[in-house]
Design a protein around this nucleic acid. Structure first.
Length: 384
DNA sequence: CCCATTTGACCTTG
DNA sequence: CAAGGTCAAATGGG
């Protein structure tokens, strides 16, 4: 996992090129009176991110192991074979012992799984119910009232858990104050082939979100498709998931990859809505194949908390189908990541029609959120 | 009838 | 021990 293989190298180069591209864009912006200040700042931010990414890549490739053990003293992990877990989620109820141990292992692993948080804001004015779907299919397995929180927290796990042993899970909690904001905590990385880039694999039409299959790896292509989709309005926002994953993988840095990808290849985008907040958000369809590739190529490793917390806002309105394929030698690799870092992003979900079947009222998984029709959206000061 | 969600019990963690 | 997280039987929708 740690060595810099061709892939990483490629990514590195790719990233550098990206940075260059961004710089060029910035230059254009500087010369263009029409460019907004936000847009420029955005670019600057992205450039910085790009640098950071590169740096992290470089540093990580040389010293990952250390990080791992180092981190939080959770040195465990990594090696065990999750396979046992995966294979059969749980034994019958009969065996206590077995169950216990299994449980425990799982738990342990759980602890060392990467964890990152994202805040998604659903824009009331828009499609409302459909907050974004991150491109993965999840199955709810529990809900719990949390102490102090007005809203219950929903627990989701990857739909393919049993089949592929994918241990990714996420927790969704609606913010107390602002019902349009959801805190989503992801844990573990998807090892399933859910968002397979090109896997023609057997996709069942029935499933709502299968997205991605037809996407190409070619970034441009990808982008185009997205645009397209956008108009269609259905979809999910892809990137965040990726990003998250991505950053997680990058261990150290990662801070805002998201944002940067977001626009890389589509500089001047203009979005329909003009609400104030929207403007401050980055709205392009964020998908980046770049990210994807990126992340794929990285294997997990330890990550260290970035020196500065990063926050990004997105306006999620587009779909996302991101696909990432993974090429880890073994699916289990990701379990090795030691500690979690907390990254927070706020995504502003503008819309998104949901195809999710159910629309829950009290829970807000991703595809179903409901809010106050009357809610007015004024943009709270986002954080920096 | 199948499958995702619901929900209360059970288990882990701090 | 309380709070949080997960399991799995029951429930409900398609």
């Amino acid at each position: 996992m740690a060595k810099m293989g061709d892939w990483e190298q490629k990514n590195l180069i790719h990233e550098l090129k990206l940075g260059m591209e961004l710089a060029k864009q910035l230059q254009l912006h500087l010369n263009s009176p029409s460019s907004s200040r936000e847009a420029r700042e955005m670019l600057v931010q992205k450039i910085q991110d790009s640098y950071q990414k590169v740096l992290s890549m470089l540093s990580s490739s040389s010293s990952m192991v250390d990080h791992q053990t180092h981190n939080a003293g959770v040195g465990i992990g990594m090696s065990e074979s999750p396979s046992s877990l995966n294979g059969s989620p749980r034994s019958e109820d009969s065996d206590r012992d077995l169950k216990d141990t299994e449980y425990r292992d799982a738990t342990k692993k759980r602890n060392c799984m990467p964890r990152w948080t994202k805040q998604v804001r659903v824009n009331p004015g828009m499609g409302l119910e459909g907050p974004l779907d991150d491109g993965f299919s999840w199955r709810k397995y529990g809900q719990k009232d949390i102490l102090g929180a007005k809203h219950p927290r929903g627990y989701y796990r990857c739909t393919h858990r049993n089949v592929q042993g994918c241990l990714a899970t996420k927790q969704v909690q609606r913010s107390d104050e602002d019902p349009t904001i959801f805190d989503i905590t992801y844990r573990g990385k998807h090892t399933c082939s859910q968002a397979p880039e090109i896997l023609p694999q057997t996709r069942q039409p029935s499933e709502n979100q299968e997205q991605n299959t037809n996407i190409n790896i070619d970034p441009h292509h990808f982008y185009q498709q997205h645009q397209h989709q956008q108009t269609l309005q259905e979809n999910k926002l892809p990137s965040q998931e990726l990003l998250s994953t991505f950053r997680r993988d990058l261990k150290v840095i990662t801070q805002d990859l998201d944002s940067h990808q977001t626009e890389l290849q589509f500089p001047p985008f203009h979005f329909p809505s003009t609400s104030a907040d929207q403007n401050r958000v980055i709205s392009p369809p964020m998908v980046d194949s770049t990210a994807t590739t990126f992340m794929e190529s990285f294997s997990p490793s330890a990550f260290m908390p970035p020196s500065s917390a990063s926050t990004s806002y997105f306006s999620a309105s587009s779909s996302g189908v991101l696909h990432h394929h993974y090429n880890y030698g073994s699916p289990n690799q990701n379990l090795q990541i030691p500690e979690a870092t907390g990254h927070h992003h706020i995504i502003s979900a503008a819309t998104s029609a949901t195809n999710s079947p159910s629309i829950g009222i009290n829970d807000f998984p991703f595809g179903n959120v409901e809010f106050d029709p009357n809610f007015t959206f004024d943009n709270p000061g986002f954080l920096h």
